[in-house]
Design a protein around this nucleic acid. Structure first.
Length: 419
DNA sequence: TCTGGGGTCCTAGGACCC
DNA sequence: TCTGGGGTCCTAGGACCC
């Protein structure tokens, strides 16, 4: 049996932990630049606010109902996530962290009669230790556990834990379960399925395997088998190395000058390099892109991207920034208002496995010592205290007018909490 | 006029997830 | 006026091998 522990309205719940006056009030959390709504409390969902809805379109409702609005504070959410996962690890021997707010666990070996009780215990303990409300779904496959987790959120009387075990219970649920809510069915597939008369998980299972295979390939077959109770997605314990790392941002305005873009790209490359080093990894490919505002159909549109294969995989900020700069100079053209840009690293390997080059002019051990020193200074005295000159100390302005404090990670902010 | 067969590896693009 | 960010996996097709 698979167990899913899913934090309810995670970002909104994190904000509530540190401001109990938000309890019972609608709360939304915004994306970068205060662009879109990316998390909503139940009260906010009830007002009809949608996931991904642009903030400016929701302003009316937000004002009318006194919705509490927060800019994303991902350092806070990251730290709360770490606490939730740490609590789960005290309760279960192995935990597969699936996302910032979800984890899978394995109940096999536990007597069926005890599962419900253990599930409730998980929900209660996480709530007590972290303040975050969670839903626990228990079922024979991951996909069914996701269904069970969703049910918890719909029916409060389940008290945060739902177990689907007997076939007749599973059937009963699937008959009513909307196909678009099934894990692995996105808007494109659900559109296709609905056009074919499939609107519930049950309808999907009535279709022939050949039909599913032809239209959705192995992914569809996997979903089908999982819904039938046959596990196709296993439990993954050890987290393997990431395959790509990207840092991309939208700007608060259209940017037309190469100098501003250059500072941003340098900053993105720096952040990407820091992520690499934190994981003890190096990248052998780097991609940079710039693009205009796709919502402004009245303005000239452009999407440009460039990629370099690095002769020797690297985690050096200097090397990545200079490659990124070269790519930017090559693809920039005057006359466009660029709205978004980013850096993507791939070909990622552990630092120990980097293959040297015979005529490599770089003194890599020296660069490594420099990076270590910079990371250490920035770690001790705050991020971006030491930066490469091309990034500079004047980042492009970003909107985050509703940022909460990083209560759990910054000393001055921890001390500022009113008790 | 006729123009093989059996593979591997890589990448771009499309689908999905949270 | 204002429209997010960071990932994974699968597949088809091209380039290449013998």
């Amino acid at each position: 049996m698979f167990v899913l522990c899913d934090c309810n309205n995670f970002f909104a719940s994190c904000e509530r932990v540190f401001d109990p006056s938000l309890e019972g009030r609608p709360v939304v959390v915004l994306s970068n630049n205060d662009g879109c709504i990316v998390a909503r409390s139940n009260e906010a969902k009830a007002l009809g606010l949608k996931m991904g809805q642009p903030y400016f379109q929701a302003r009316e409702i937000i004002r009318a109902h006194k919705v509490a609005v927060f800019s994303g504070n991902h350092r806070l959410y990251g730290d709360m996530s770490r606490r939730v996962m740490a609590t789960l690890r005290t309760l279960m021997p192995s935990v597969e962290v699936y996302s910032v707010d979800e984890a899978f666990m394995d109940f096999s070996g536990l007597p069926t009669g005890q599962m419900m009780q253990r599930g409730r215990e998980i929900a209660l303990t996480v709530r007590r230790n972290t303040g975050i409300p969670v839903s626990v779904g228990i079922a024979p496959t991951k996909t069914l556990a996701k269904v069970a987790g969703k049910l918890c959120k719909q029916y409060p009387k389940l008290q945060g834990c739902c177990m689907m075990h007997r076939q007749q219970d599973i059937d009963k649920v699937l008959r009513k379960f909307p196909i678009e809510d099934v894990w692995g069915i996105g808007w494109r597939y659900s559109k296709m399925l609905k056009a074919a008369g499939v609107s519930t998980a049950w309808d999907f299972l009535q279709a022939s395997p050949e039909w599913v295979q032809a239209r959705m390939g192995v992914l569809g077959m996997r979903i089908r088998n999982e819904l039938l109770g046959e596990p196709c997605i296993g439990f993954e314990q050890a987290s393997s190395m990431q395959q790509s790392i990207c840092v991309t941002r939208s700007f608060s305005r259209n940017v037309g000058d190469i100098e501003s873009l250059h500072r941003s790209i340098a900053s993105f490359a720096t952040s990407a390099a820091e992520k690499l080093r934190r994981q003890g990894a190096c990248a052998s490919r780097m991609q940079v892109f710039i693009c205009t505002n796709r919502h402004r159909k009245d303005l000239p549109q452009s999407y440009q991207n460039r990629m370099v294969e690095l002769p020797v995989a690297t985690d050096s900020t200097l090397e990545l920034v200079s490659n990124a700069s070269a790519m930017l100079r090559e693809m920039f053209s005057q006359g466009y208002g660029y709205k978004r840009a980013g850096v993507i690293l791939s070909g990622i390997i552990p630092r120990q496995q980097v293959q040297g080059a015979l005529f490599d002019p770089t003194d890599r051990p020296r660069q490594a010592r420099l990076m270590q020193a910079i990371d250490s200074v920035n770690g001790r005295h705050g991020r971006k205290k030491v930066v490469v000159a091309s990034e500079g100390f004047n980042p492009l302005e970003v909107n985050h007018d509703h940022r909460s404090r990083s209560y759990t990670t910054e000393w001055n902010e921890i001390l500022s909490i009113k008790v």
